[in-house]
C-alpha cells in the first residue's frame, strides 16, 4: 500500500493524517473524559453520554443563532459563552438524572446500562420532536475559518487547532480538579473505599451527584466543541458511544492518563489507516485490534493499583 507514494509524499500524508487524527483524538478525549469520570470513578455505565454531548451541541447552535440575530457585534466570541451554557445545561440535566434514576442503581451496574440506554432513546426522541430531525450546523466566526499553511504541501485547519487547544485546556482543568481540588480528593477517596470515605465524614451521595453532573457537563462541552468540526442531529450521539466506551476500557477504566493515551492510540491508528484503506476497513481493523488487545489484557493499558 505504500509503494505508490514517494518518501516525501508519505511524510506529508502521515503529517496530514496525523493532524486529522489529532482532531479525532480531541473529540475522543473530550467524550471519554466525562465517561471515564462517570464509569471509572463511579462504576456507572452511562449509555446516554452521547445524548448529553448532543445537548451541548444544540445549546451551542442556539447560542450562535441568538448572537447572530441579537448581538452580531459579539459574534466572534459567542463560542465561549456557548461552552459555558453547554456545560451548565448538560451538567444540570446530569444532576437531575442522577437524582431521578442513577442513585437507585449504584449496586447494579448492568442495570444502569439498560436504564441509561432507555434514557438515551427518550432524549433522542425529545431532540427529534423539539429540534427537528434535520442535522444542524453552526456558523463559525470568521477568525476560525481557513487554514494555516505549514509547508507548501501541509496545511492545518484553524478550527481543528482551536478544538485541540480547547481539549488541552479542558483536560488540564479536569486534571487539576481531580488531583488538586477538595472535590477531586473526595472523589478519589470514594472510589478507593466508599465505606471508609463515608466513615471519615465525606458525604458520598453528594460526591456521586456532583461527579455525575460534572461528567455530563464535560460531555456538554465536548458537544460544543464537536459543532466546530461536524453537524449535529438527534442521533449523532449514538455514533460515538461505543468508540468512547472502548477508549475508556482500553485505557484502563480508572486511569485518566490511560484514557488520554488510549484515545491517542486509537484515533491515530484509525486516521492513518483511513488514508490507505477505506474508512470502514480502517475502523474495523482498529476496533478489532482494540478488542484483541483487551482480550489479552482485560484490565486495560494503565491500571490504577487499589487494594480491595
Amino acid at each position: 500500500m505504500f509503494a505508490d507514494y514517494s518518501l516525501s509524499e508519505l511524510g506529508s500524508i502521515f503529517v496530514m493524517q496525523g493532524f486529522a487524527g489529532l482532531i479525532l483524538f480531541s473529540v475522543f478525549v473530550l467524550m471519554a473524559l466525562g465517561l471515564a469520570i462517570i464509569f471509572g470513578q463511579m462504576g456507572v455505565i452511562n449509555m446516554a453520554h452521547g445524548e448529553f454531548m448532543i445537548l451541548g451541541a444544540y445549546v451551542t447552535y442556539f447560542t450562535s443563532q441568538f448572537f447572530q440575530n441579537v448581538l452580531p457585534s459579539l459574534f466572534p466570541i459567542y463560542f465561549f459563552v456557548a461552552m459555558g451554557l453547554a456545560f451548565l445545561a448538560s451538567g444540570g440535566l446530569g444532576i437531575a438524572v442522577e437524582w431521578a434514576l442513577i442513585r437507585h442503581l449504584y449496586r447494579r451496574p448492568l442495570d444502569t446500562l439498560l436504564a441509561t440506554w432507555g434514557l438515551s432513546l427518550i432524549l433522542q426522541q425529545v431532540y427529534r420532536s423539539v429540534f427537528g430531525p434535520r442535522e444542524v450546523g453552526v456558523e463559525l466566526p470568521s477568525w476560525m475559518m481557513g487554514s494555516l499553511p505549514l509547508t507548501d504541501v501541509i496545511e492545518v485547519q484553524i478550527n481543528g487547532l482551536f478544538v485541540m487547544s480547547l481539549t488541552f485546556v479542558i483536560t488540564l482543568v479536569v486534571g487539576l480538579m481531580m488531583f488538586r481540588s477538595r472535590w477531586g480528593q473526595q472523589v478519589r477517596a470514594v472510589v478507593q473505599n466508599r465505606v471508609m470515605a463515608g466513615a471519615v465524614g465525606i458525604n458520598t451521595h453528594k460526591v456521586d451527584r456532583l461527579t455525575f453532573g460534572i461528567g455530563c457537563g464535560i460531555a456538554g462541552v465536548a458537544g460544543s466543541a464537536f459543532t466546530m468540526i461536524g453537524s449535529t442531529g438527534p442521533t449523532a450521539g449514538q455514533l460515538y458511544i461505543v468508540d468512547t466506551f472502548l477508549v475508556v476500557v482500553f485505557g484502563g477504566a480508572q486511569s485518566l492518563v490511560g484514557t488520554i493515551f488510549s484515545a491517542f492510540t486509537i484515533s491515530q491508528a484509525q486516521s492513518t489507516m483511513e488514508f490507505f484503506l477505506s474508512g470502514s476497513t480502517a475502523k474495523v481493523l482498529t476496533l478489532l485490534a482494540v478488542v484483541g488487545i483487551l482480550m489479552l489484557r482485560p484490565q486495560g493499558l494503565l491500571v490504577l493499583k487499589i487494594r480491595r
Binding site: I45, L110, V249, S280, T281, V284, L287
Partner: peptide, 24 residues
Amino acid sequence: RVGGVYFAIITQAIAAILTILIVG
C-alpha cells in the same frame, strides 16, 4: 475472567465491528 460490564461492552463492540464489516 473478563465479565460483567466489560463483557457487555466488548460484545457490543464486536457487534458494531460485524455490522460495519457487513455494510462495508
